[in-house]
Design a protein around this nucleic acid. Structure first.
Lengths: 335, 335
DNA sequence: CAGCTCTATCGAACCGGTTCGATTTAATCA
DNA sequence: TGATTAAATCGAACCGGTTCGATAGAGCTG
């Protein structure tokens, strides 16, 4: 590998001039610039990103930290961010915490060690120590999906209260009263908000919620399946199930199928968030979806803005909350 | 951030001794070691990974390059690799080329620039120049999924010929003769092998393949859908469709549903590779699946072996080909 | 006790860039 | 034309580690 000193020697200028020519060509005389250009071309010089990062104290990498890259929700956002970052000569490194807080923290630490230019972070869990840690970082960070009280950063997400409320209202309109709700982890903002949307809408309609009808699905497949089973074996079954996310809802569908319940004839089902092959799942699930492309775009622009703009770094944090969209399917019947 | 010089000053030893104590404690006297330990603890020293990588010419990162991290096939492999790497104090950075060769190359170049310890690479496309580039890298690389002629590296994958043959044989056994095949990109090894498995099995059974029954689905959703439509509008329709991967097969299912064909009553369907929610897709698709956990484990061990073992780096490349598994569903009927 | 070997530690160069004050060169003005 | 100023270039220190030959002291041998 050719180094900057090889180039300097060949162009017969100092190392610092080559460096200057690279970072600010306007401040180098045209003929020197040309000599340097030729030298660079002839030895095939490419600056070592590691050395640059060390010297600058900052790299051109952006860290993307989520709990599950396989989730299409995160996948779409990642793609948007990646495209935008690439256009601005930044490079996205993706890390997956598998939803484990300890691992998430280790990954953030690692990315900080890499002197990443910025972080797009979907926190999956946290304790006070972790919050302090995140607060102590002086790197641009845009949080998304999970709004965490105590993290004073830009936040990009959807109106989860509304998402829960919309589906609840839809089921009420169809005549359902015995509506069950499969929740997510109580420490997650999306989970609590969606539940709040459900509970308040029910209360506003004057419908009491049977306490056996609220079960914890942890946003995971196994817990969701188990939670659904608990709902289905009750003598007084719900007429509709609302899944707080795609995973628990589809786990519920699986449980229903295995026990021989038909959807929507026996039990209606609705969920928040799309999945990849929803169009071939029978019945087509009625859902509320987030505008992942828009979210990804906002995250990307906001993060790059803070990274590239000198004063962008000190702007006060801002929240961007998008309205989710209702997508009717045929998994909810009128009763 | 505390540097190694701060530690040296506090422990009243030289910088090089601190470095030695960190990398090879046995060669430092016990009392010096203790002084250094205390100093490290009191200033909270953590070595800068960037500076280490620059000085060593090698980092503790492993690059993971695939065309679509959202695909559960790659997701499982990523998880296995990540767990194993973490156990060996290595860190996986994931990059997604979105199936674009140019981007894939840029990502590999970037990872090499980061002086990654090794690469797990699922090539999605290539030209001669790219092959030469990969060949020129003297970093441990384990290729997987796509076997590329011209890349002399370890390879981990499944027997794709067998995968195609197994499903074809199954359909023949059920009495199908008019079997259609939706292929993947012809430059992909998995695609050509799976097709070969289909074609040869058909030939061996003495069944001629209608040339209109072989359509190109590019392993993508849009092309797969289009290809399926072309099959379904023919006056002489196939009685069974075999999708060369999950994406094209499910696109075909969608096309069938939209045109009002029932599966398997009107047309049978089988596919290679699982998807996340196959258990709630109706009908349950008959498929051949790869053992992603085993693949991931082999990739991880092989790569770490080459990285950590001094002589591992020079071992000749080896192929690991696993046998895929037949998973019956109810998407294929006897005729 | 001189001569030799080992062990522990050190100093300096190095990895490959960036940065900034100092210096040289060129252009502008009185 | 000499003084002044701006533009171009340079040198050296720096980022934060690693590495390796040199050195000093301890321990062993004859």
């Amino acid at each position: 590998m050719a180094t900057i000193r090889d180039v300097a020697k060949l162009a017969d200028v100092s190392v610092s001039t080559v460096s200057l020519a690279l970072s600010n060509p306007a401040r180098v005389s045209p003929k020197t610039l040309e000599k340097i250009r030729q030298a660079i071309a002839s030895v095939g010089f490419v600056a070592d990103p590691l050395a640059q990062s060390l010297a600058r104290g900052r790299s051109r990498m952006i860290g993307f930290v989520v709990g599950n890259v396989g989730n299409p929700f995160f996948g779409d956002i990642r793609r948007e961010l990646e495209n935008y970052a690439l256009d601005h000569e930044h490079f996205v490194v993706v890390t997956d915490s598998s939803g484990k807080t300890a691992r998430e923290r280790a990954m953030v630490e690692h990315l900080i060690g890499l002197k990443t230019a910025g972080l797009a972070l979907a926190p999956s869990g946290y304790d006070q120590e972790y919050l302090d840690f995140v607060a102590s970082l002086n790197v641009p960070i845009v949080c998304f999906d999970q709004k965490v009280a105590g993290i004073e950063r830009d936040f990009v997400g959807s109106d989860n209260y509304l998402a829960g409320a919309m589906l609840t209202e839809h089921l009420l309109q169809l005549g359902h009263r015995r509506i069950a709700f499969i929740t997510g982890p109580s420490h997650m903002h999306t989970a609590t908000e969606r539940y709040r949307g459900f509970a308040e809408t029910m209360a506003n309609a004057g419908v009491e919620v049977n306490s056996n009808f609220v079960v914890d699905g942890q946003f995971t497949r196994t817990a969701g399946y188990e939670a659904a089973m608990r709902l289905l074996i009750q003598p007084e079954r719900p007429t509709a199930i609302l899944g707080a996310n795609n995973t628990v809802a589809l786990s519920a569908l699986q449980a229903m199928q295995e026990l021989g319940f038909r959807c929507p004839e026996d039990i209606s089902l609705a969920m928040i968030d799309n999945v990849q092959w929803s169009s071939v799942i029978t019945p087509r699930i009625t859902m509320v979806v987030q505008d992942t492309l828009a979210l990804g775009g906002i995250i990307a622009r906001r993060l790059m803005h803070r990274i590239t703009n000198p004063q962008g770094a000190v702007e006060p944090p801002q929240d961007f909350v998008l309205t989710p969209k209702f997508v009717p399917g045929n998994s909810c019947r009128r009763i």
